[in-house]
Amino acid sequence: MPTGVAIRDPRRQLFEAAERLLLRAGPTALTSRAVTEEAGVAKGVLHRHFTDFDGFLTELVRSRIARLEARGEGLIAGAGTGSVADNLTAALIDVFDAVGVAVVSLVIARDELRARLRALGSPGIPLMAEAAGVLRAYLAAEQDLGRVTGDADVLAPTLLGAAHLLFADRESPAPDTAAVHRVVTTVVSGAVR
Rank of each mutant, 00 (worst) to 15 (best):
M1C: 04
T3M: 10
V5A: 15
A6Y: 12
I7A: 00
I7L: 15
R8C: 00
R11D: 10
R11M: 02
R12F: 03
L14C: 12
E16G: 08
A18S: 11
E19W: 08
E19K: 14
L23D: 10
P27K: 01
T28W: 06
T28I: 01
A29R: 07
L30D: 04
S32Y: 15
S32E: 04
A34F: 09
T36I: 05
E37W: 09
A39P: 13
A39G: 12
G40M: 03
V41H: 09
F50K: 08
F50T: 03
G55I: 09
T58G: 10
T58P: 06
E59N: 11
R64C: 06
I65L: 04
L68T: 13
E69S: 06
R71I: 00
R71S: 08
G74Y: 01
L75W: 12
I76W: 04
A77E: 14
G80M: 09
A85R: 03
A85H: 02
D86V: 00
D86R: 00
A91Q: 14
D94K: 01
D94Q: 08
A98Y: 03
V99L: 05
V104R: 13
S105I: 00
D111H: 10
L113G: 07
L113N: 05
L113K: 05
R114P: 07
A115C: 00
R116S: 01
L117H: 06
R118D: 01
A119S: 14
A119V: 07
L120F: 11
S122E: 12
P123V: 08
I125V: 15
P126S: 00
E130C: 02
G133C: 04
L135M: 12
R136L: 06
A137V: 03
A137S: 15
A141D: 08
A141K: 13
A141S: 12
D144E: 15
G146F: 10
V148M: 11
G150D: 05
D151G: 02
T158N: 02
L159E: 05
L159N: 07
L160H: 13
L166A: 04
F167Y: 15
A168C: 12
D169C: 07
S172W: 06
A174T: 11
P175W: 09
T177F: 09
A178D: 15
R182M: 07
V183D: 01
V183N: 01
V184H: 05
T185K: 04
T185R: 14
V188E: 03
G190M: 05
V192H: 02
V192R: 03
